[in-house]
Write a protein that binds this DNA or RNA. Structure first.
Lengths: 383, 383
DNA sequence: AGCGAATCTGAATCGGGGT
DNA sequence: AACCCCGATTCAGATTCGC
């Protein structure tokens, strides 16, 4: 077991504490992973003793059969027993039970973060409101590299949702506004965050297989703890898994408590946290996500009215022409159709073509490449 | 009142309809705004008569006092009476009531879209699941230019959430996959969409003041209707406001029905929709999935001489080869035989295989998938 | 060693029509 | 209702392989 300085030792020298609070702090098993059911484990902890709770509960995915990629390979889905519930109602009851225990553990000025997907997040959010928490923001984690929708049946599921809530409508809470603004190049931090999914060296593996099917990226926890806790605060994670919350808390000098049922995850988490190093300056700078050049799809110009469906485009030498259609595809007179790039390539018999510079439109008597419209759009919408 | 061709007039010349369906269509007030309470108005409409519902219900914002910008100017917040509910429970009851009526109106293959913010979307999503809808995606509208958080107390609220759901777990639904992929420069459309908020010339104003506090951008509706409806489909908006749904539906050649209580909004919507110009037929034609193309059996290519019996096919990596037989089956050297799909799967030991892209033939010194022969056949035989 | 090609993988409610 | 067959369908990033 890992053990960091217990709360009592660190605080008894300071300002006097109420007896109950002193007992609470002395009993608080920070720097430890408690093995067992999260509701039972939370019941054993003292009330009003935790500053922040981060929870990544089971999503209750309810997947159908097997799924294969177009190349025939098999998709390794989340089929673990801990994600199985008998019914929507059973999941709902479980959700309300652990959220109620969590509320009891939070100090009056504490707060909770919960992450989920559309499978469960609406149930979670509704329960949070019903239990008297006060939602402060919902945050969208935009995945830089999500798994595609292999069957072409829906939109690519490219994000997850987090809810940040205080203990009540009038409750205080911690929000390090300046830290967030600094982290975001002196612009207010928005409610949509982009991070890659957890992979590479950060992804815990054993015998070549991932230890946990849903390990979260440390960057996500880093931003949350930096935004909503102070050094020394106690962070509880009731679904600890492989300990991302503990590792990041240690790096940032926050105390932590983990609750986890599965021994395999606990073993991996302990090893991982033991190896975690306190933050140095360079780690902070790597957190600053480089601002990617904004991409604009041709279809966006059609949707937003910068270019009307029905507009006729021609190439610079006026050899080919095509009409813009409602979905951002182009149709030529000879019946061929495709994206600006594909149709340009087809008509020229070329393997590829940059449609942005190939296609032009008539404007003030001159031919303008459609790329100028994209520049206009970017100027109008970028801060 | 605006009125487009009613369903009955347009369909009586065609194939006979069941009586109930004929009544439904004749009674359907498409191209109209019904004034009144949305639940009462929906009750008066026939069951299973609508292809898509788009709903932008009151968000139940629960704002505190007045809000000022750092420069002292006043923020014009949503304080309208229609956004006031007595309690969370009252809002919940209202949400479940209109969502239940909406479900009754949807055809079995229909779908619903609802937009909201963290104030209400969790209640809405939980109700959608409880009522037996099946969530297909949650979509994040990332605002390119959101209002900043003036007090510096939270993250900038820079997105809203939409839920897309079918009428049940096993229900069919419309999703124009190819159109979405084309619209997004040949990449799958993701669940996070970026649009500017509604402003400029698009924003309806009267005497210098915005007519509606939460007018949605047409680009948002454009993408939804393009993705989830076909031309001629009936789209219902039970919280019509200033008619963004109607204006975009008219442009895209979809029929529409609006329900709205406030006369001021109705007047603005009617004027706006009357001015909207429908796209012409050629612009409305969109990219189709191969699914929608006429099917060609492999045997047809053999019968019609596009491929000679006895031709040897091989896979791209030249690991397997097989001979085309007179009945359109393939036979491998090791004695196995079957359809192009089945033999491909058997030889690879895979559960399934698309023979059209797996098998190749030698042409002009290069390997060509046999799908190119099918394309040649289609070009030659389709009008 | 270094570069380009090929391979692998990630919280996924992932098909439709005929017999 | 269950089974069978046809055949449509993937993006970004990390890692490994091959030259």
């Amino acid at each position: 077991m890992i053990d960091r300085v217990a709360g009592a030792t660190a605080t008894t020298d300071e300002a006097p504490l109420a007896l109950a609070q002193a007992i609470s702090l002395s009993a608080l098993p920070t720097g430890r992973i408690i093995q067992g059911d999260c509701i039972a484990a939370m019941r054993a902890l003292p009330a009003a003793s935790v500053d922040l709770i981060f929870a990544d509960p089971p999503y209750n995915l309810q997947l159908g059969g097997e799924l294969s990629r177009p190349d025939g390979s098999h998709v390794d889905a989340v089929t673990d027993h801990w994600d199985k519930f008998d019914s929507l109602a059973a999941y709902d009851a479980f959700t309300r039970a652990w959220l109620a225990e969590a509320k009891r553990l939070l100090k009056p000025g504490g707060a909770i973060w919960v992450i989920g997907s559309y499978h469960n997040i609406f149930k979670v959010g509704a329960a949070i409101q019903d239990l008297g928490y006060w939602i402060l923001n919902d945050i969208v984690w935009r995945k830089a590299n999500p798994m595609p929708n292999f069957k072409g049946t829906r939109f690519t599921n490219a994000h997850e949702t987090l809810i940040w809530a205080s203990t009540g409508e009038k409750a205080k809470y911690t929000f390090n506004y300046r830290s967030m603004k600094t982290l975001n190049d002196e612009l207010q931090m928005r409610s949509d965050w982009e991070f890659p999914i957890c992979g590479g060296a950060e992804r815990l593996k054993k015998d070549g297989h991932k230890v946990h099917p849903t390990q979260k990226p440390e960057a996500l926890l880093y931003r949350i703890l930096l935004a909503c806790t102070k050094p020394g605060d106690v962070v509880l994670d009731p679904f600890f898994g492989t300990g991302t919350t503990g590792a990041v808390a240690k790096r940032l000098g926050r105390r932590w408590i983990g609750i986890e049922r599965e021994g395999v995850y606990i073993a991996a988490a302990e090893e991982r946290i033991a190896a975690a190093l306190p933050l140095d300056e360079s780690a902070l700078t790597t957190m600053q996500s480089p601002k990617a050049a904004p991409k604009v799809a041709f279809g966006t110009l059609v949707e937003t009215g910068y270019l009307e469906p029905g507009t006729v485009l021609i190439d610079a030498r006026r050899r080919f022409s095509a009409t813009v259609r409602a979905d951002g595809s182009l149709a030529s007179a000879c019946g061929q159709a495709g994206s600006i790039h594909k149709l340009g390539a087809t008509l020229q018999g070329a393997p590829a073509c940059n449609g942005w510079t190939f296609w032009h439109h008539e404007a003030q008597g001159t031919l303008q490449p459609i790329d100028t419209i994209r520049q206009t759009y970017l100027l109008a919408t970028q801060p």
